[in-house]
């Protein structure tokens, strides 16, 4: 079994556009104190955001922590090559590649997603019905995101769920502003349909 290729090689998820040259990851690098400090600042400032973004891109609860680690391991490898000011763009680009790998691995393992809604943190003040209702909503949101094409999913997650501006999204994803707007519009249409179905299922108003 050891002859098998590495399933998710570090950096292999960087199919996305603005990654530095692949060869740069091969050379052993000792980070300077400045780079190490810069990397720690990225972890402190962006880890939660990237973790949620990965989740929004469909990485399962079972794989989300590993996927987040992958993103930051790749970032550590390449920190010296990341242009100042474009760190977040690099993280998002890497996250999209890692998420794509993770989703393919999930599909191979045919994971059931029963536990995927479990990362809704328990609120002690909630009664069991409220909690069940939240978990149901979360599961349906996951389902909607899962069915959304990847390019629309990224825009929807960033704009509606993470509150990133459209101009920033255009910059982060390296796409024209008009494309952001059109993807968001189509994603919203799909979301509206999903919400109607959800409303009918739980018996509330659409």
């Amino acid at each position: 079994m050891f002859a098998d290729p590495i399933e998710i090689e570090i950096g292999a998820g960087l199919a996305a556009t603005d990654a530095p040259p692949a060869g740069s990851a091969r050379a052993p690098t000792t980070l300077s104190h400045d780079d190490a400090a810069r990397f720690r600042a990225l972890v402190d400032g962006q880890f939660d955001f990237i973790w949620r973004f990965l989740r929004g891109l469909g990485v399962s609860e079972a794989g989300i922590d590993d996927a987040a680690q992958h993103v930051f391991m790749v970032t550590a490898q390449r920190i010296a090559h990341i242009t100042l000011g474009s760190e977040r763009s690099f993280l998002l680009s890497t996250a999209r590649g890692v998420a794509a790998n993770a989703r393919r691995a999930q599909a191979r393992r045919r994971e059931v997603s029963d536990d995927d809604a479990l990362d809704v943190h328990a609120d002690p003040s909630e009664n069991p019905e409220e909690r069940a209702s939240k978990m149901e909503a979360r599961a349906r949101l996951d389902e909607f995101l899962e069915e959304l094409p990847e390019e629309m999913r990224a825009v929807f997650v960033l704009f509606e769920l993470e509150g990133v501006t459209m101009a920033a999204i255009a910059q982060l994803l390296a796409i024209p502003p008009g494309t952001v707007a059109s993807r968001l519009r189509r994603a919203r249409e799909a979301f509206h349909e999903a919400a109607v179905l959800f409303g009918e299922r739980v018996g509330g108003a659409p």
Binding site: S133, K134, A137, R138, L161, A195, G204
Partner: peptide, 9 residues
């Protein structure tokens, strides 16, 4: 309700 479900993530 769906969007609020994200907030606990």
């Amino acid at each position: 309700e769906l969007l609020n479900a994200w907030r606990a993530t």
